[in-house]
């Protein structure tokens, strides 16, 4: 498992709807803030890149020291963003694909308003389990 990994989902309206620190490193608040900052800074690149390719998985689009940003853009332009320090591309890709499936289940829930925060604890548990498995 990667020592540092921060996963967020950004809705098509540029609002973060899910955040999770999934690395095995000890949680520190200032580091978490730095991760958010890096991911936020990568948004512009994602926006430009998303329209140039038909691929959903955009790997290593941005970096900060030894941290790399990989993004998965769904058809509805929801962005699954992962900040990581591992180089395990296949694992990251599988992670994104499986989280995408989970995300689809969330938006199929009639009681969930698209674009609102994902509060489901079930989803949270599953994402963390996937992170342990693939990252």
């Amino acid at each position: 498992m990667a020592t540092t990994a921060c996963f967020i989902i950004v809705s098509r309206n540029d609002i973060p709807i899910y955040e999770a620190e999934v690395g095995s490193a000890v949680k520190r608040e200032d580091v978490a803030h730095l991760h958010q900052f890096i991911l936020h800074a990568a948004q512009d690149i994602v926006q430009d890149l998303a329209w140039t390719t038909s691929a959903m998985f955009l790997k290593a689009i941005d970096r900060f020291n030894d941290l790399v940003v990989s993004v998965y853009v769904t058809a509805g332009h929801t962005r699954l963003m992962l900040l990581h320090d591992s180089r395990n591309d296949d694992g990251i890709k599988s992670f994104f694909q499986e989280v995408h499936e989970l995300y689809i289940k969330i938006i199929l829930n009639p009681l969930y308003l698209p674009g609102s925060r994902i509060t489901s604890s079930h989803f949270d548990t599953k994402v963390r389990a996937l992170a342990r498995k693939y990252l």
């Binding site: 289940k105 199929l108 829930n109 009639p110 009681l111 969930y112 509060t119 489901s120 079930h122």
Partner: peptide, 10 residues
């Protein structure tokens, strides 16, 4: 109830 999960508000 496929896909359904009750949010806290309901």
């Amino acid at each position: 109830v496929d896909f359904v999960e009750l949010p806290d508000t309901c």
